[in-house]
């Protein structure tokens, strides 16, 4: 009984984090992106510098009508947002936050194969956007769906290779184990892997500069064109939840997770700070760089990231064996 209660409590906490952290990242994006563009961002909602903007957005989305186009494949169209969103919730279950005031790790469930589980869950999320693109009955969505398929498949390989390099260095696939085995000089030896993982993760999330599938000057909104109301909000939540998952994974794998002073009590604070810092990098990349063309996206994946990732794996092998 105690175990069941424990499991339910952990799931509820993960669900709470899943619903609030993406909103915080979203608000940070509003404000940081605004100031980087010499403007102020939302100021009205909530009174103090528009802190409640995303709450207002949520209410707006809830009260909107969810329209299904006549030419759309009804079932596929309506299921796509759920298929895009749920894998990120599932992935969050296995990512550790660090020691919480002397207790064991804050984590949904520490899996032996944690890293593989998270990567597998993220790869299922791809199907959601693909279903949206195919099922919308819209030419722009169709082309967007094709771009999604090509891009997300191309970038899964460097991402898995970079993650595999860290797993090799740590000797375990468990995320808690990897964070515990982390050494500060890994920042240097795993640096190519870090860059590859981050860039490939950005492309997996279809964040600018890799948002060719959603290019709004070319494809209206790509696979998301026909979506409105709550379904669109689900896709948006999936994007920001993906940013949180990517930041959390980068932190745990490459930045040492909860490493820092007083980590057995404040480890979770260090984790959260690093997640916020990586999310800021994601937002910074969006503002600073123009969109990559579709052929540039694929060329980057296959001609740059895969060789660098393979080189990183080789380097790690040499270091581990030596």
């Amino acid at each position: 009984m105690g175990e069941l209660l424990d499991a339910v409590l952990r799931c509820l906490i993960v669900l709470g984090a899943f619903l609030t952290l993406p909103l915080l990242v979203g608000q940070m994006e509003h404000k940081a992106m605004a100031h980087m563009q010499s403007r102020v961002g939302p100021m009205a909602a909530g009174g103090f510098h528009g802190w409640a903007q995303l709450v207002a957005d949520g209410i707006k989305f809830v009260q909107k009508e969810s329209i299904t186009p006549a030419a759309a494949d009804r079932r596929v169209f309506e299921l796509a947002p759920a298929v895009a969103l749920v894998p990120y919730l599932v992935a969050m279950l296995a990512i550790p936050l660090g020691p919480f005031f002397g207790q064991t790790n804050l984590i949904g469930q520490d899996l032996d194969l944690g890293l593989f589980f998270v990567l597998a869950a993220m790869s299922v999320g791809v199907l959601g956007t693909l279903m949206g693109g195919l099922g919308s009955g819209n030419k722009y969505s169709y082309i967007g769906g094709m771009r999604v398929a090509a891009q997300l498949m191309s970038y899964e390989l460097p991402m898995v290779l970079a993650a595999a390099s860290v797993a090799m260095a740590a000797g375990t696939l468990s995320l808690v184990g990897i964070a515990q085995e982390w050494e500060p000089w890994w920042l240097l030896t795993q640096l190519p892997g870090l860059v590859v993982f981050f860039v490939a993760g950005l492309a997996e999330l279809q964040r600018p500069p890799f948002d060719a599938p959603l290019a709004d000057a070319e494809l209206v909104m790509g696979p998301l064109t026909e979506y409105g109301g709550m379904r669109f909000a689900m896709f948006l939540l999936a994007e920001y939840a993906g940013i949180v998952v990517l930041a959390a994974l980068t932190t745990v794998l490459f930045l040492g997770g909860w490493a820092g002073p007083w980590s057995d009590h404040l480890g979770w604070v260090w984790s959260l700070l690093k997640i916020v810092a990586v999310s800021f990098l994601v937002i910074w990349a969006r503002v600073a760089y123009p969109r990559l063309r579709e052929d540039q996206v694929n060329a980057l994946a296959w001609k740059v990231l895969v060789p660098v990732a393979l080189a990183q794996v080789t380097l790690t092998t040499v270091l581990v064996v030596a």
């Binding site: 032996d112 194969l113 593989f116 589980f117 990567l119 597998a120 869950a121 790869s123 299922v124 791809v126 199907l127 693909l130 195919l134 169709y142 769906g145 094709m146 398929a149 090509a150 997300l152 498949m153 899964e156 898995v160």
Partner: peptide, 25 residues
């Protein structure tokens, strides 16, 4: 469990996406 997650990662995540991509083309 390892085979299970490889099944999800490779088959569901990549092979089906490839199949759909080929269909679209």
């Amino acid at each position: 469990e390892f085979v299970a997650w490889v099944q999800v990662l490779v088959y569901v995540g990549s092979v089906v996406v490839l199949v759909i991509f080929a269909l679209m083309l």
